[in-house]
């Protein structure tokens, strides 16, 4: 989609976040346009997961703004107290539009796979049950675990659970997908099946933010890459350029160290 001005799907500006006395994000700005697949890279402790969790307000930034599909989340960031959303209802509305896939899947263990996928469309979005069911079944088919629809999460392998979690996210009909290290909790032989699903989603032109350790995958799938180091963006740009010509020493080092061990 060259030369077309696309709308910003997610826009973060000047995000600062501290836990107690320690600041982990020192003012990070980042924009993902519609159709962008943004990889967020960085060593552990760089603040990349925290940044992603600021998008859907699982972490509320101490200062800075977050907008999703052009709508800014109004925050109460008065100094001297914990930051919080000014309007929880607005946050819940926006969370429906930016669905998250977690590192540890976080499927609801008391519900079957099908019920997990239907839960939010049915009860949060109030859509019709038959419609939710049909859509959920189609999504499970798509991620390749339709046969497991009546199993409970504990009965599935990690790869299957993560694919179910992706179906759960898609069932919300979100505008943006947030992936928080989606393969880090998986056994190596199960990583491939999950990456394949994500790759297919990228090919569809979905807007996605992906925090990952899988360098080859990031290089392969993402349109843009952001490299975070110690709570600041050290380098960002189109993925192909960044991997071909890393400008900063930090990123070069990072590529050398992680590149060798990636899939």
């Amino acid at each position: 989609m060259p030369n077309v001005v696309r709308a910003a799907a997610v826009s973060l500006s000047g995000i600062r976040k501290n836990f107690g006395p320690l600041e982990v994000l020192h003012g990070v700005s980042l924009t993902a346009h519609e159709g962008d697949v943004v990889s967020i890279l960085g060593s552990s402790g760089s603040g990349k997961s925290t940044l992603l969790r600021c998008v859907n307000m699982l972490e509320v930034p101490n200062s800075g703004n977050v907008s999703i599909m052009g709508e800014e989340i109004s925050l109460d960031q008065r100094p001297g107290r914990a930051p919080r959303p000014a309007d929880p209802k607005q946050v819940n509305k926006l969370r429906e539009r930016a669905a998250m896939v977690f590192q540890s899947f976080n499927l609801w263990s008391h519900l079957t796979i099908l019920q997990n996928v239907m839960e939010a469309p049915l009860h949060v979005q109030g859509r019709h049950r038959n419609e939710c069911r049909a859509e959920a079944e189609a999504l499970l088919e798509r991620v390749g675990i339709a046969a497991k629809r009546n199993s409970y999460p504990s009965e599935l392998s990690g790869g299957q659970q993560q694919r179910a979690a992706i179906a759960r996210a898609l069932a919300m009909r979100p505008d943006v997908l947030l992936f928080d290290e989606p393969t880090s909790a998986l056994d190596p032989e199960l990583v491939g099946e999950v990456l394949k699903v994500i790759r297919d989603l990228a090919a569809e032109g979905r807007t996605m933010l992906i925090v990952t350790h899988e360098m080859a995958f990031a290089r392969d799938v993402s349109t843009r890459t952001v490299f975070l180091h110690q709570g600041l963006i050290t380098e960002e740009g189109p993925t192909s350029e960044m991997f071909a010509n890393p400008r900063s020493d930090r990123f070069r080092q990072f590529l050398r160290r992680d590149g060798a061990s990636s899939h």
Partner: peptide, 12 residues
């Protein structure tokens, strides 16, 4: 994590 997933999916 499961409680957090609920919140992330827009549950009040």
């Amino acid at each position: 994590g499961e409680v957090e997933a609920g919140r992330a999916y827009g549950m009040g």
